[in-house]
């Protein structure tokens, strides 16, 4: 099934000065997949994506994107992928229509007006086509950007934190759109901070401080972490929170309303520690489900911060 790999890169390394931002990252993405790219700020997500769309040259590494050599065919890769930047980067002082026409001309899409009109129509912006892009709200800007970078029907779509600062409804609609595109055969790599968005991906990749830490489906990543979770409920949760957090067998304690989320690597040790501390208080302890967020927090505290 090698031919179905849209992204297949190994040992991808990028240094800025003497700082290694991406360290020997490998990634494989199959055709039609939506892969979530997760990691803390400054972990190398944007740099990795930029290397894969030909915007940055890797210091070392090898592999193919859409069957094209990552190191030699940067220009061809640019033509074949769609890349949506983190910050809205179309022209505020051009109208919606002019922005689309600009992009269509750069990709030599013909007939130009058919493409532009169709895109305007699918966006529902036909009546506002003469409006300046800068006057659009955040959600609309993001939809415009998505439409613009998919207008040339790229086989691979790279999205860099596309939903940052967008309201939940617009986010939901955006993800519906992504799934429609994937169903049509487009492969999508999307970086995000949001756990609920990670759960809408077929697979996820977790990168921290330049190192790829985990890859797989959400269930696989959670299971491979070996973490167990207990839920502590009751009135007195705030009184035990500190004692719980200091216990060596407990990794994380996070309050969610009146419930404490207690996470540790060893199920038995975790249970006895919690029972012991909570014994003197009016609290109930039950088995909980480890979430992706718990796993990521563990990754982040485990990985050495080399961004200092």
């Amino acid at each position: 099934m090698k031919s179905e790999l849209v992204i297949d890169v190994r040992d991808l390394t990028k240094r800025f000065g003497n700082k290694t931002v991406v360290n020997q990252v490998a990634m494989q993405v199959r055709r039609g997949e939506i892969v979530g790219f997760l990691g803390p700020n400054g972990s190398g997500k944007t740099t990795s994506i930029r290397m894969m769309c030909g915007l940055l040259t890797a210091n070392s590494g090898e592999g193919t994107v859409l069957g094209l050599d990552l190191m030699r065919d940067q220009l061809k890769i640019k033509r074949e992928v769609g890349y949506m930047t983190q910050k809205f980067s179309f022209y505020d002082d051009l109208t919606i229509e002019e922005n689309l026409a600009f992009v269509a001309r750069l990709y030599k899409l013909k007939p130009l007006h058919t493409y532009v009109d169709k895109t305007l129509e699918s966006l529902g912006l036909t009546s506002r086509r003469k409006q300046l892009a800068g006057s659009l709200s955040g959600g609309w800007k993001q939809r415009l950007a998505l439409a613009a970078c998919t207008m040339h029907k790229p086989k691979l779509l790279l999205l860099d934190e596309p939903t940052a600062g967008v309201d939940p409804k617009a986010r939901r609609e955006f993800w519906d759109e992504i799934h429609v595109l994937a169903a049509e055969g487009m492969t999508v790599l999307v970086s995000t901070h949001y756990m609920d968005e990670a759960e809408r991906c077929h697979r996820i990749s977790y990168i921290a401080y330049g190192n790829m830490l985990a890859q797989g489906t959400v269930e696989e990543v959670v299971a491979s972490s070996g973490l167990h979770t207990l839920l502590v409920k009751g009135e007195d949760t705030d009184k035990v929170a500190h004692t719980l957090a200091d216990h060596p067998d407990i990794d994380q304690v996070a309050p969610f309303g009146s419930t404490l989320h207690v996470v540790g690597p060893n199920e038995d040790k975790l249970k006895s520690a919690v029972d012991e501390i909570c014994a003197d208080y009016d609290l109930t302890v039950e088995l909980g489900e480890t979430t992706l967020e718990d796993v990521f927090i563990k990754f982040m505290s485990d990985s050495k911060d080399n961004m200092q």
Binding site: C53, K78, R79, Y83, T85, S89, F90, Y91, V103, Y107
Partner: peptide
């Protein structure tokens, strides 16, 4: 807008 411009062919 430079990033976007460079990402296009």
């Amino acid at each position: 807008t430079m990033e976007n411009l460079l990402a296009m062919p």
